[in-house]
Design a protein around this nucleic acid. Structure first.
Length: 336
DNA sequence: AAGCCGGGGAA
DNA sequence: TTCCCAGGCTT
C-alpha cells in the first residue's frame, strides 16, 4: 500500500505536502461527506481568508458560515469555529498531537482525529471512512451488514490490525493516504479498476469476480418530502429581508427568507396593499439526501420597516457574504 | 442504537 | 433516479 501510494497515489492536492495540522484539519472537515472536487474552491477561499487557527478563532461565526455557504452540513462550519476557539483557549493555539486529544475537539470524531494524527504526527491510528470501508470489506470479503454496530466495530478492529509497524513518521501518512486514494480512484463504488489495483492478488472480492457486492448495508432511510413557503420581501431600495434560522434543524443559524407553513400563512403576513401585487414564482425542487424540498417563493414589495426582530434588510452588496442555503442563494442571484 | 444534518457528482 | 462522498452530534 505504501509503495503504491508513493508511485501511483495523489500528491498534488492543496492539503498535501504539509504537516501543518491547521491545513490538514480544515481539509478533513471539509471532506466529510463531500467529494474532493467540491472542496477545492472552498478550501482555497477559506485558507486565504483564515490563514491560521488564530485568525479563524478571531472571526465572527457569521463570516465562517458565509464562506461555508453552499458546502452543506453547516454544523461542520459551526464546530470548525468552535474548535478553533478551543484550540486557542485549551491548547494555546497549537493543535494537540494525539488522536485521543484531537477527538475531544468539536467536529473531530474518531476517523478525522486519526487522519490528522497520522498525516501530521505519524501516529499509528486507523481511519475508517467510506473509502476504507469499501476497500477493507472487498479485500477481506466481509459481507456483514455494516448498519449493525457490532460489524462496524469489528471493521474498526480490522483497520487497526493492518496499520504499519515501522518507520511510522513516513509510513503512516503514505499508508493512510494510500487507503484513501485506492478507495477514491481504484476501488470505486461501481466498476472498480481491479486490473490496476495493487491488492488484486489478495482481494477476496476480486477473486469472486464480484467486488460491487461489497460493502453490505441494508438500512435505508426513506426519503421524505416537505413544502416550504418563503417570502421574498424587497423594500423600495431593493434591499431584501433575511432572518437567521433557529439553532436547531435544517440550515441552523443560516440566513434565509422568512419561512411560512403555507401560502395562506405567508400572504396573511403581508399588508393588503402588498398582498395584491405579490408575485408567486414557479415552485422548484431542491433535493437533499434524505428529503425533497419543494420550494415556493412569493415576492412582495414592502416598506423598509422591520418584519421581525431576528433579521434585517440587506442590500445587494451585503447579502452575498452571508451564510445562505444553496437554493436561496441561487434564487437571489437569479433575481439580480 | 437510531435519527439527523446539505449539497453535488456520477452513473 | 439512486447512491454516496476524507462523518459527527444528539437523542
Amino acid at each position: 500500500m505504501i509503495d503504491w501510494q508513493r508511485q501511483h497515489g495523489r500528491h498534488g492536492l492543496p492539503w498535501q505536502g504539509t504537516r501543518d495540522p491547521y491545513r490538514v484539519w480544515l481539509s478533513e472537515i471539509m471532506l466529510q461527506q463531500t467529494q474532493v472536487t467540491t472542496v477545492l474552491g472552498y478550501y482555497a477561499r477559506f485558507l486565504e481568508r483564515f490563514p491560521d487557527v488564530a485568525r479563524l478563532a478571531a472571526a465572527p461565526e457569521d463570516e465562517v458560515l458565509g464562506l461555508w455557504s453552499g458546502l452543506g452540513y453547516y454544523s461542520r462550519a459551526r464546530n470548525l469555529h468552535r474548535c478553533a476557539c478551543e484550540v486557542m483557549a485549551r491548547f494555546g493555539g497549537a493543535f494537540p498531537r494525539t488522536a485521543a486529544e484531537l477527538a475531544t475537539l468539536p467536529g473531530i470524531g474518531r476517523s478525522t482525529a486519526a487522519a490528522i494524527a497520522a498525516f501530521c504526527f505519524g501516529e499509528r491510528a486507523a481511519i475508517l471512512d467510506g473509502n476504507v470501508k469499501r476497500v477493507l470489506t472487498r479485500a477481506f470479503g466481509i459481507d456483514d451488514d455494516l448498519s449493525e454496530a457490532r460489524h462496524e466495530r469489528a471493521l474498526w478492529a480490522r483497520a487497526e490490525s493492518l496499520l504499519p509497524e515501522h518507520d511510522l513518521a513516513r509510513s503512516m501518512p503514505a499508508y493512510t493516504q494510500g487507503l484513501m486514494d485506492l478507495g477514491a480512484g481504484i476501488c470505486t463504488l461501481r466498476r472498480p479498476a481491479c486490473t490496476v489495483c495493487p491488492l488484486v492478488g489478495d482481494c477476496v472480492a476480486a477473486g469472486q469476480g464480484a467486488p460491487a457486492r461489497y460493502p453490505v448495508k441494508t438500512r435505508r432511510v426513506a426519503r421524505g418530502q416537505i413544502t416550504l413557503w418563503l417570502l421574498h420581501a424587497q423594500d423600495e431600495q431593493g434591499r431584501v429581508w433575511l432572518q437567521q434560522r433557529p439553532d436547531k434543524g435544517i440550515w441552523a443559524r443560516l440566513f434565509c427568507l422568512p419561512l411560512h407553513e403555507g401560502r395562506e400563512a405567508l400572504t396573511d403576513s403581508l399588508p393588503p396593499a402588498a398582498r395584491a401585487e405579490a408575485i408567486e414564482h414557479a415552485p422548484f425542487r431542491h433535493v437533499l439526501t434524505h428529503r425533497d424540498l419543494d420550494i415556493h417563493i412569493v415576492s412582495a414589495r414592502l416598506p423598509g420597516t422591520a418584519l421581525g426582530d431576528d433579521g434585517r434588510w440587506f442590500t445587494p452588496h451585503e447579502w452575498p457574504a452571508l451564510g445562505l442555503p444553496a437554493p436561496i442563494r441561487r434564487f437571489l442571484q437569479a433575481q439580480a
